[in-house]
């Protein structure tokens, strides 16, 4: 504000308006032009219905969503009953629009057990993954690593880890340790490490370096200096990211069951294969409530940490 004022004053004093040169309007930045062109080209290539595109037609979408496609359903589920989709649509409609529709409140053991198992998988993966993440996050930051080689290796490994989607980790761990909750826990542990290490080590670069210099000047080893001067500074952010990872894990745990790695997804895929939509919608609803509740609690804790 004060800067603008002083410029004006100076101009008023030294330069009559006639002597000033008005600049031409600059052309758009090359970044803007190239960026927009690239955006449009990429969108066309990916959306068009051809070899390299997925055939996405935004205009046809509302129509398709308004009515299901019987041929699709028959081919998919080996059912010829045309009422199937009517049932499905009707079920969705009554459950989500009619407040009087009775919810089947009794959760059978498959659903209840699946939900509990989902929570357990998320809890174990978050605690174990977050515990491993703190030292790795320090090493993943330039400031925190004892030397360049360690930094480069940790960073490369974590980038590889983050590039592998959790469900692929789950499928691989099913091969290594068999089906059940264990591969799910291991997969989400890897996922937690990827998220927490990345986010936490980004915080390291912004901390106050003074205490680290003080620890070095006191003759502390690198590890001791990091523990006493750096870790206390990143602890609130780290705790917040760990809770965030818990939210993501709880949501991500849904998909594990589809590759045999336990949790609510197992019940979901089972009832789906049985065409028991009643049960599927119960699962979805209860699971959503669980996710929303946990997320609200987690967010309020994180707000206090921040």
């Amino acid at each position: 504000m004060s800067g603008e004022a002083s410029v004006d004053r100076e101009r008023g004093r030294t330069e009559p308006a006639g002597r000033q040169v008005r600049p031409r309007k600059p052309p758009p930045q090359p970044f803007t032009i190239l960026g927009l062109a690239g955006l449009v080209a990429f969108t066309l290539v990916t959306a068009w219905d051809w070899a390299l595109g997925i055939g996405f037609d935004p205009l046809a979408l509302p129509g398709e969503l308004a009515d299901s496609n019987p041929a699709m359903v028959e081919g998919l589920f080996n059912v010829t009953d045309a009422d199937w989709r009517a049932q499905y649509v009707e079920l969705l409609r009554t459950h989500f629009t009619d407040p009087d529709s009775p919810w089947p409140l009794s959760l059978d053991s498959r659903i209840g057990g699946g939900l509990v198992e989902t929570v357990q998988i998320a809890v174990l993966a978050t605690i174990v993954g977050a515990a491993l993440s703190l030292p790795l996050a320090v090493l993943n930051a330039r400031l925190g690593a004892p030397d360049r080689v360690t930094h480069a290796v940790v960073k490369a490994l974590n980038n590889v880890n983050r590039a592998i989607p959790d469900v692929i980790w789950a499928a691989l761990f099913v091969v290594l340790v068999g089906v059940g909750a264990l591969p799910g826990i291991l997969a989400l542990t890897m996922f937690t490490i990827g998220v927490v290490v990345k986010l936490t080590s980004d915080v390291v670069d912004g901390i106050d370096r003074g205490p680290i210099e003080a620890a070095r000047a006191a003759g502390a080893s690198h590890a001791a200096a990091m523990r006493t001067a750096l870790v206390p500074q990143i602890l609130p952010a780290y705790a917040s990211f760990s809770l965030y990872a818990f939210e993501l894990n709880l949501r991500g745990a849904a998909v594990l069951g589809f590759v045999g790695a336990g949790g609510i997804g197992q019940a979901m895929s089972y009832y789906w294969s049985q065409l028991d939509f009643e049960a599927v919608s119960v699962i979805v609803f209860v699971y959503l409530v669980l996710v929303v509740v946990v997320e609200q609690v987690s967010i309020s804790i994180r707000r206090r940490l921040g």
Partner: peptide
């Protein structure tokens, strides 16, 4: 021992 202009304390500890 060393003492610094900006104290260099870990303010959260």
């Amino acid at each position: 021992g060393m003492i610094f202009q900006s104290f260099n304390l870990v303010s959260r500890s």
